[in-house]
């Protein structure tokens, strides 16, 4: 089941940039890539919890600002030789609005 919530306008997030939203499960980063897709991931690198939302966004990946781990935005997997995984959430853009599927955020908090 999905619960889509309207979060903000696409233009509130800079291209090749990110903004965070606060949730009970911690901060979730919304990334806007060069092709105007939106990806939602926990805002914490699996390495040392660096704020991914402050990293450089390139292609469909972000580089953590602390130690340059590269995280795949589509899967949440650390790339290269690193091992690690970030939670991802479903997000989409509809008519210039960013929608986030908050069902997992709610489910996790209920559990």
């Amino acid at each position: 089941m999905s619960t889509w919530m309207d979060i903000a306008a696409l233009d509130d997030i800079p291209p090749r940039g990110a903004r965070v939203i606060k949730t009970r499960m911690g901060c979730v980063a919304l990334f806007r890539t060069h092709d105007d897709q939106i990806f939602a991931l926990d805002d914490a690198c699996p390495h040392k919890k660096g704020p991914l939302s402050d990293g450089i966004v390139h292609g469909h990946a972000v580089t953590c600002p602390l130690h340059n781990w590269v995280i795949d935005l589509e899967t949440g997997q650390a790339q290269g030789n690193e091992r690690g995984q970030v939670n991802t959430y479903r997000a989409r853009v509809e008519q210039g609005r960013v929608l986030l599927d908050i069902s997992r955020l709610a489910a996790r908090s209920a559990a």
Binding site: A8, I21, T23, R24, L105
Partner: peptide
């Protein structure tokens, strides 16, 4: 933060 979902979620 862009939004605060601590209540909604």
């Amino acid at each position: 933060p862009l939004a605060d979902l601590t209540l909604e979620a």
